[in-house]
Computed example of a mutant assay.
Amino acid sequence: MIKFSLAFLFLTIGIFAQENKADSAIKKQIEDYNASFATAFINGKQEDLVKSYTDQTLFMPEHSRQRVGKETIRDFYKQWLAQAKVSAYQRTILELQDLGNYVLEIGTFAENLNVNGQNPFSYSGKYSVLWKKSSNRSLPPTIAAEIWGSASYFDDKNIPNIDDTAVPPTKEYIPTDKLTLEVKERNNRIKELVRNRQGAEHAKMFMPDAMYLTYYTPILSGEKEITTYFTEHEKPGTLRIEQISIQTSNIIYAQKAIVEFGFYNVDWRDGEKNGNVKGKSINVWKKNSDGELLLFRQMVNHD
């Protein structure tokens, strides 16, 4: 776990809940990275693809398991490029949130690819990248975590089939400090709401100005869109949650937020149909003016 500084402990609730935009220098560095990444992806330059990752980076690709560190990320892109020809790739930044010693980038992506001679496929969706600022402002930030997912349902035969057998299982982080225990309590509450199909109550776990980036769905912004989604997605009916776990794999205490990395496992049944869903998430928690810990930004995808 990345330790938090004393400065974090002395933040007021008002500062903790405040929305902050990244400065122009950081924005330019991230824009430059996105442009160079797109060029490297199209040209198949694997080393250029991993230059901003570190040995601690948490990498959460859609329809694949979480990977940790530059070497496992390099292997992911090696497999991707061995199976697919990428003819176009672009990221569009929607917002940059300054979290103090970190910056959260949220945006959309569009990738045109052709897997093993199949018909061309337009893979598009949204993404979130947590950047760690360098102590030397002249140096670019590094990627602490990254996640992405499609904006609509798609057949995964259209993207490369990544072999994850060598990737170690994600392990649960066992909390010892008060704030992490508070996050765990919040997750336990979410489990109850999902199991009991209380979607409208689940939506109240988000701040009014939150953003929710979930699987096969465009970005949901604000209280109205998030409430509408959860009210429908988790409505009472014939679907039953037979088992659900929501666990934490790591925590970063940024200066202006708590960033949690989660993973989940759900067994469901609907009449004669049943299944299991596994996935992962990046969850940015902040406190409101009442001191309640709520989700400010969350992105989720399936393994």
Rank of each mutant, 00 (worst) to 15 (best):
F4N: 10
F4W: 03
L6T: 13
A7V: 03
L11V: 06
T12Y: 06
S24P: 08
K27Q: 08
K28F: 02
E31L: 15
D32E: 08
Y33I: 07
A35N: 08
A40M: 14
K51C: 12
T54M: 11
Q56K: 11
F59T: 00
M60Y: 13
G69K: 10
G69L: 05
E71M: 04
D75E: 11
Y77C: 00
W80K: 01
W80C: 07
Q83P: 00
A88E: 08
R91F: 13
T92Y: 09
Y102H: 13
V103A: 02
T108Y: 06
N116D: 12
G117S: 02
G117W: 15
Q118I: 04
F121I: 01
K126S: 13
S138W: 03
T142G: 03
T142Q: 13
I147H: 10
D155L: 13
K157T: 08
N161P: 02
D164I: 02
K171A: 14
P175V: 12
L181P: 04
E182R: 14
R186C: 10
N187Y: 14
I190G: 04
E192V: 00
A200S: 11
H202K: 14
H202Y: 14
K204M: 11
M205C: 10
F206N: 11
D209P: 03
Y212Q: 07
T214Q: 11
T227Y: 01
T228Q: 10
Y229K: 00
E232P: 11
H233L: 08
I244L: 15
Q247K: 15
A254M: 09
V259W: 01
F261R: 02
Y264L: 04
V266L: 15
E272G: 13
E272Q: 15
K273T: 14
K273C: 00
G279H: 01
G279D: 10
K280A: 01
S289Y: 11
D290H: 15
L293C: 09
Q298A: 11
V300H: 09
